[in-house]
Design a protein around this nucleic acid. Structure first.
Lengths: 209, 209, 209, 209
DNA sequence: AATGAATGAGTTTTCATTCAT
DNA sequence: CATGAATGAAAACTCATTCAT
């Protein structure tokens, strides 16, 4: 699935990229604070460092900002994931590392992850699929890891299980962001990672025996 | 924590209850469809079967509707849970049944659960704690079950683990609602329940050996 | 000019009088605080000790309350004036006493006088004349006093002067109420009375010599 | 006391001034007719020649219009007063001229003066002091004149008397506006000026002898 | 390309008044 | 007579979007 193109009136692609970066940065800060609906386009323009008129040279509608933001957040998460997980060796140890890494990324970007979770539903029927597709790609990362492990005999899992467990991993990580009001009171990030890793591994490993 | 009282201008308590029921029912239907922010108070009044003026005899602000809705959804979930889980025997079998029951409730009320998850963040700083408290009560149900099992020697878990696993159970169930765009394509509810139960049990049981 | 009758649905005249008394008392308290426009009919009903439905058994419109209030305030002022001034002896001394008495009444009822001054303009074209007429009666009191004094050779004034000076007396008294934000800081009531009496007397007496 | 600044969203100061002028003009016309409370913001916008949205680019709240109107009226009165009274010679003759001039200004701006008197009370606790301060400045004009006359031996008055008489002058002038329903029937402006000037002068001069 | 003034449909909320009980 | 629930027109205010400069 190709990226959904948000049309800009401005032709200079380099400029479009630059302005949109400013825009996304400003918008994320605002969305964190007050959510998409309570943030006005004027505020977004101001936070981005340009005028409301200029804002509309780079988007068509307010919703485009949300799409751009969601898109960017996923790219950010993905990028950070790939930096480390690219080198996966299909051992329990490296699986653990992958999970720990993912959880740390979630912790790092917890505001962003939260924004995504709470605001994505406001995307139009047109944009939503593109974002859900990105979420699928996140899941796919863990599917691949699990798959490799299965192929190397480290885990024994059916296709069905692989898919579900990948979802579980993704969700049990995101949990750290969207249930932080409760979890951060009880655990440090390291404790959380250790406990969840144990939990996940057992849930996945059992069959090995 | 006591229920947060939403003041009504109308004095007849029975009537308030009745009208608010109509209101909540109407509002949930609308929130499902278009979310809290895109729903107008006039639409809520209309869907509830009374005029805008009457609506405001039973609430002070639009946000009160959201609070009432969230409150109701939790009560609904809780009620359904308690109907069955009251009779818990601290065996693996009955633990499985509890999970299956919870997942079925989530399936039954998936629209409502979704509304809760996506809109609760729009509650004011004043109301939010009351709703988060209700979510904690949901978690507490599973904490108790796990606790009983541990006391009876069925599971071996630390306090820390009990708390986290209870959260995990709750989240892995809600997942069925908030990731339905993906999960419902791959699994029937029964398959989902079976796979997740297996996963959870292994994650929890392992230490028994 | 006859009193404008505000029609009531209730027939029992005694009851109408009683209820309206409660109403006027409650309304004045509210109008003092927040003015006619910012006071709601519900508040008036509550402050009067009965329900909104009952309120409308004794008036037709909100504006009727204002009319009744204005009417009552004038009656109050008049009544207090007449209690003392009835016995006027057409001497400078008794003229002074009349002024002092009037100023004290204004001081006593300053909130009421203020309400009158600030809200009377909100009366309908239908009611206004009746209230202005009452104001004219206030002026007439002093016209009469001046007239008597002129007839007895105490003052020498033309008809024109009598009318204007009567207005002046009334206004320079009301001033104590509607400029209290300034005057009360500078003078006690007694000082104010003394200074104004001197001022008035000189303005009026001069011609005697 | 500095002017209270009413913030505008529009940055171009020249434009703000121009639009606010249109606004004030439109609003005064409406307030004269129906008072502040009965005038809607849409009516103000329409009378000002722009849309409701544009109106709110130049004010924050409806009340700001009232403040702007009151502020303007005082400036208008002051300006007209200063044009002539600047050259005051501390003689009875020039004192008479000052009064006559003031009374003529009141006559000229009687609608505006009325609006001020009847609506100022609707200003917020925040704005009121600024407007009362302007009223004090009006009084101060006559205080100065009286003071100068006293210093030059034209009148003999205590500080206390100066302050009170200045108030009296101001009020006996405004009277021409707020009691016009009665006074205009009995006197022409010139008659009123002559009679009041005589009255005032006697009240003030007496002590000379 | 950038600006920001102008627009007006749309939103929440209030409140005088009615009328069935 | 008294009540108070119901009504809906009307009010203040917001904000995404456009377009002339």
């Amino acid at each position: 699935m190709k990226k959904r193109e948000v049309p800009a009136s401005v032709k200079d692609e380099r400029l479009v990229k630059k302005r949109r970066n400013e825009m996304i940065k400003g918008a994320i800060a605002l969305f964190k604070q007050k959510g998409f609906h309570r943030t006005t386009t004027r505020e977004i323009a101001k936070a981005s460092g340009f005028s409301i008129g200029t804002l509309y040279e780079y988007i068509r509608q307010k919703e485009d900002v949300l799409y751009l933001v969601c898109d960017r957040i996923y790219d950010e998460v993905r990028e950070r994931m790939e930096k480390d997980i690219g080198t996966h060796h299909a051992t329990v140890e490296s699986f653990k590392l992958a999970i720990a890494h993912y959880f740390k990324v979630v912790d790092d970007l917890q505001d962003e992850v939260l924004v995504m979770y709470q605001e994505a539903k406001s995307l139009s029927k047109e944009s939503l699929p593109y974002v859900l597709n990105k979420e699928m790609q996140m899941v796919a990362i863990f599917e691949e890891i699990l798959q490799t492990c299965v192929q190397n005999g480290v885990f024994q899992l059916t296709e069905q299980e692989i898919k579900l467990f990948a979802h579980n991993i993704v969700v049990l990580g995101q949990m750290w962001a969207f249930r932080r009001w409760s979890l951060h009171k009880m655990y440090t990030l390291d404790e959380f990672i250790e406990l969840q890793t144990e939990f996940l591994l057992r849930g996945i490993l059992q069959k090995r025996s």
